[in-house]
Computed example of a mutant assay.
Amino acid sequence: MKRILAFASVLAVLSAPAYAADFVEPAPAPEAVEPLPTGGWYLRKDISYDFMSSDGVDYKAGRDNASFSDVDLDDTGNLGFGVGYQINDYFRVDKTFDYMFSTKFRGSTKGGGSNDGSACDVKCVSTDASSFKAFSLMANAYVDIYRWGVFTPYVGAGLGTTYINWGDLKNTACAAGGGGCDDTVTHKGKDSWRFTYALMAGTSIDINCQWKADVGYRYRHVDGGSMFGRKLNGGPGSDKGFDIHEVRSGIRYQFGDACPVAYMPPAELPAEQPVFK
């Protein structure tokens, strides 16, 4: 009898509703949103005010070598265009074309006179005037140092070439201390390609996702070359090159969707509690 009761008790327990601990399967974690790539092509346009400085002028006076005693260049302006590529957050490169507006040259020479009975017979001082235009082709590289809000300071350097087109040089020699002047002599201007290097520093300013303003400073050095030809026992002459200090402003357009998307880490799900049923 006891065995029958025990067996019946077991059946009752098995047939009664049982408590089972079933766990709810967790939902899959959302995928992280990756930032958009920062690289891409861009176009640029720049304008600058250029402070010009000549390194001097050498010329032939008969068979002798001589140098201008005074040289001066007017300040001028520059208009530039370029295409570049933003490689990553810190490094970009571009190629630029710059057109320099005409700048006037003034100089003077001192000599021992022509000894030919002219006004400038014993000791003379000349006044010389010319001008030149130029354009440059440059390859440049920049390091964007650090993004601080909408501002990104940068430094850069460039190498390239500059085409200098000198106008005619007008030379007027006068007797030192008065006594008259000779007729003005015109020397044919020369043109040449010159090696050029540049150093830059400035700040990019984000306007929106595609547009950036750019303000900065650029130093360019243009090597020397031919300046004017020979005329009446004077010349030819060559300039020793130029130093150009530029205050620049410009704008850049970045192709593509340049708006960064912030990284969103996966949401932390609360620990699932067992549900009993």
Rank of each mutant, 00 (worst) to 15 (best):
Ala267Ser: 09
Cys124Asp: 00
Leu43Tyr: 09
Lys231Met: 04
Gly189Lys: 02
Phe105Gly: 09
Thr203Leu: 01
Gln273Ala: 13
Asn171Leu: 08
Ala12Gly: 15
Thr196Tyr: 12
Asp64Leu: 09
Val33Asp: 13
Asn115Ser: 11
Asp116Arg: 07
Asp168Glu: 13
Asp121Ser: 10
Ser48Gly: 15
Pro30Asp: 10
Ser67Pro: 01
Gly40Pro: 12
Gly241Thr: 13
Gly112Asp: 12
Pro37Cys: 05
Cys259Lys: 10
Gly180Lys: 12
Asp94Tyr: 03
Lys95Ser: 11
Asp70Leu: 00
Gly177Val: 00
Gly180Met: 14
Asp72Ser: 15
Val261Arg: 15
Ala16Ser: 15
Pro26Trp: 04
Asp70Cys: 01
Glu25Phe: 13
Ala129Arg: 10
Ala20Ser: 14
Leu14His: 10
Leu159Cys: 05
Ala213Thr: 00
Leu159Phe: 15
Asn233Met: 00
Val24Gln: 04
Phe23Thr: 00
Arg147Trp: 03
Pro265Gln: 04
Val93Thr: 13
Arg63Leu: 14
Phe255Val: 13
Leu73Trp: 11
Ser126His: 04
Phe7Trp: 01
Lys45Arg: 14
Gly167Met: 08
Asn115Thr: 03
Thr196Leu: 08
Thr152His: 02
Gly256Arg: 06
Phe68Thr: 06
Val24Ile: 15
Asp50Asn: 10
Ser102Gln: 14
Asp74Met: 02
Ile207Val: 15
His221Thr: 12
Leu232His: 13
Lys212Glu: 14
Tyr253Ser: 09
Gly84Cys: 04
Phe135Ala: 02
Ala29Asn: 08
Ser238Ile: 01
Val24Tyr: 01
Asp257Trp: 09
Tyr59Thr: 10
Ala12Arg: 00
Glu25Ile: 13
Trp166Arg: 06
Gly237Ile: 00
Lys2Gly: 15
Gln210Tyr: 07
Asp257Leu: 06
Asp116Cys: 02
Arg63Lys: 06
Pro274Glu: 08
Ser53Gln: 13
Asp182Gln: 03
Asp239His: 14
Glu246Thr: 14
Gln273Gly: 03
Lys240Glu: 12
Phe101Trp: 10
Gly189Leu: 08
Thr76Trp: 05
Asp183Thr: 01
Asp223Leu: 03
Lys170Asp: 04
Arg63His: 07
Thr38Pro: 01
Ala175Val: 00
Ala119Gln: 13
Ser118Val: 05
Gly112Leu: 15
Asp64Phe: 08
Val122Tyr: 07
Tyr90Met: 12
Ala198Met: 06
Phe81His: 00
Met200Gly: 02
Glu31Met: 11
